[in-house]
């Protein structure tokens, strides 16, 4: 089976006063059809820039400086002209963002914005576009869609706004949906609704999905495979089951222990010392080494490579190549 999306050596750099910052550094992954891939990381890990890079939405001073992004039909998005790219954006690959309030245009009604996306990709009459918009609003669970279609964004709650964003994303039956922290701005009960909706629609539309999040709980509940990002690189990549049961990278392990959990109360949380470094000041060699509880001499000297630890399990850590299997 061909992957829906094959990303290889994707590198996105930003020119800053302090030199070039590689916000995304040599990221490679495959997204299989129908699969949900979680990209998990903290702020500044490069997960959002990765998502934006796929649709080439990174603005100056940032640019994709290396790598390829090949979709299922074999087109390399990195090399497409902006015209060809527009035909892909929204139609084949759609995206939803963290802040529905700012992602929607405040002066246009929900229906107009959905119709706009439709009319950009299809020859369709105004009337038909409006009817389709109402259908889509119904599909994403907006009550009384024929009335709500004429609502402006501010008349909708945060959860409803995100549903409108999802309706827009689905309007052209995309093959791939990229969801960048789609529920971070929402309350927990609304988050549960939206996650359920997205999972249902993904099945119904037969889409592949990339879900970007900082929340390991969401990763556990929604995704099939996970890539953990730190310092612009993928540090671990495997199936969701294995990531939680047998995490290989010290960062993943520490992160899993640092999350306050409902199901496992503790007196004291385990912590990761220090803070996530900014893209302009990534440590040399292994980017996690200053915070790593299992630091070795080698970690500050040579950058580790992403190596296979077992079937379908990659991790970027010297511990694993020194004595494989010892971390089980």
């Amino acid at each position: 089976m061909n992957p829906a999306l094959r990303v290889r050596h994707l590198t996105t750099s930003f020119a800053t006063e302090h030199g070039t910052a590689r916000a995304v550094d040599d990221v490679s992954f495959d997204l299989m059809p129908g699969e949900t891939l979680g990209i998990v990381g903290e702020s500044g890990s490069g997960k959002t820039v990765t998502a934006l890079s796929i649709l080439r939405l990174v603005d100056k001073p940032g640019q994709i400086s290396d790598g390829s992004i090949v979709e299922y039909a074999g087109k390399n998005l990195v090399q497409l002209s902006s015209r060809e790219l527009r035909q892909i954006r929204g139609a084949e690959i759609a995206m939803i963002f963290q802040e529905p309030a700012t992602s929607l245009n405040p002066v246009l009604t929900a229906g107009t914005q959905i119709a706009e996306t439709l009319r950009a990709h299809q020859t369709i009459t105004r009337k038909a576009a409006r009817d389709r918009a109402i259908e889509l609003l119904q599909l994403v669970g907006i009550p009384d869609p024929s009335k709500r279609v004429d609502d402006y964004p501010h008349q909708l709650s945060g959860g409803m706004q995100q549903r409108v964003m999802i309706a827009m994303a689905l309007s052209c039956n995309p093959k791939i949906l990229i969801a960048d922290e789609p529920t971070t701005a929402l309350d927990v009960t609304i988050q549960a609704q939206i996650l359920e909706l997205v999972t249902d629609l993904k099945q119904q539309f037969g889409m592949a999905m990339i879900l970007i999040t900082h929340d390991l709980g969401i990763v556990a509940g929604v995704t099939d495979r996970v890539a953990v990002m730190y310092g612009g690189q993928i540090v671990e990549q495997t199936t969701t089951q294995r990531l939680f049961l047998e995490p290989a990278h010290p960062y993943t392990k520490a992160l899993l222990r640092a999350v306050p959990r409902l199901d496992r109360p503790v007196d004291r949380l385990e912590t990761i010392p220090g803070a996530v470094p900014p893209a302009t000041a990534w440590p040399a060699a292994c980017r996690f080494h200053p915070r790593c509880p299992q630091l070795m001499d080698r970690c500050s000297a040579d950058p580790p490579t992403l190596t296979q630890t077992s079937e379908d399990h990659l991790a970027r850590c010297w511990l694993l190549s020194e004595c494989p299997g010892s971390e089980k």
Partner: peptide
């Protein structure tokens, strides 16, 4: 509604 970071404990939710 709070997502639990453990794929083994994905339960029926009250949504």
């Amino acid at each position: 509604a709070v997502p639990v970071p453990d794929p083994r404990e994905q339960r029926e939710r009250i949504v």
